[in-house]
């Protein structure tokens, strides 16, 4: 009785970190200690101090402000990319499950296999190399790889539901496949999707940082954690905090989202729930 309702520490820590990052991103919309587009070269590479809480980078920009705005960049890219994956992947998965064994099902699933077969980051680099670097192209590149993840997950979960009695009842009541998918299947696969979305969200943040690191993500002057890390690379010997801080930001955020995802799965996933003591 208690096992399902007790909150896991994983979940609490993960949720706290995720909310903190989200709060930082939202805060940056209205306030940052310093303007991240103003360069004060004379103040460069200061260690953390009273004025610049996390020090300054090689252009004298306030690193704390950049971390705040960088959180916004990361979250914006991840939200849209995962949104793209859900928005296209879930309907495809529902349609494939509703028409299991049909030509449509085959087309969707083989299409997924093809996208899956490519190494994600390489394709992301290809896309940004063709269409030019930038946040939008990074979103598209990351989003494309979220589509098969969600399509496959949705189809698998939905297939398990179709033979169930309440679906049969709905069919007997004369509801069509589309309506059943939306009204009965979708609510029942939502939990699984939320867990997956959390995991994909952390992967998207990591992918955005990776693309930005190689210069293919958000372009300057828009701060981005990955690019902060890349630019700090040659400064490590001079001012280690310039590299450590964005690195920590990425690690902590991804860790937080993973913990959150794990915690949510413990709550939602019936099979996992059953295994807990």
């Amino acid at each position: 009785m208690k096992k399902g309702t007790r909150l896991q520490p994983n979940l609490l820590i993960g949720a706290a970190i995720s909310l903190l990052v989200l709060a930082m991103a939202l805060l940056s919309l209205v306030w940052t200690p310093f303007d991240v587009t103003v360069l004060v070269v004379g103040d460069r590479l200061q260690p953390p101090n009273g004025t610049h809480w996390l020090g300054t980078d090689h252009f004298g920009r306030d690193i704390f402000s950049m971390i705040l705005v960088g959180a916004r960049t990361s979250i914006a890219v991840a939200v849209v990319a995962v949104g793209l994956g859900i928005g296209l992947g879930v309907p495809l998965g529902l349609a494939a499950a509703a028409n299991a064994g049909s030509l449509l099902d085959d087309l969707v699933m083989r299409g997924n296999d093809i996208v899956f077969a490519f190494p994600a980051l390489i394709i992301a680099i290809l896309i940004t190399a063709i269409f030019g670097p930038g946040a939008i192209n990074a979103i598209v590149a990351i989003g494309i790889f979220n589509i098969p993840v969600f399509a496959r997950l949705t189809r698998g979960s939905a297939l398990a539901l179709w033979p169930r009695d309440f679906i049969k009842a709905a069919r007997l009541a004369g509801k069509g496949r589309v309506l059943i998918s939306i009204e009965h299947i979708l609510p029942n696969v939502a939990n699984t999707l939320i867990v997956q979305a959390t995991i994909q969200f952390s992967l998207a943040i990591l992918a955005e940082a990776g693309l930005a690191y190689v210069g293919l993500g958000a372009q300057p002057p828009m701060p981005s954690w990955g690019r902060m890390l890349a630019e700090a690379q040659t400064m490590i010997a001079l001012a280690p905090h310039v590299a450590i801080i964005p690195g920590l930001a990425i690690v902590v955020t991804v860790l937080g989202l993973n913990l959150l995802g794990d915690g949510l799965r413990d709550i939602f996933d019936p099979r996992m729930r059953g295994r807990r003591p």
Binding site: V38, L39, F59, G132, P133, Q219, P220, P221
Partner: peptide, 20 residues
């Protein structure tokens, strides 16, 4: 240098799109 130039141009009202 390009990033600094972009900031200086922004200061006089010229926006730049940096393409690396």
């Amino acid at each position: 240098g390009g990033e600094i130039i972009a900031a200086q141009l922004r200061d006089v009202g010229i926006e730049t799109d940096i393409v690396n």
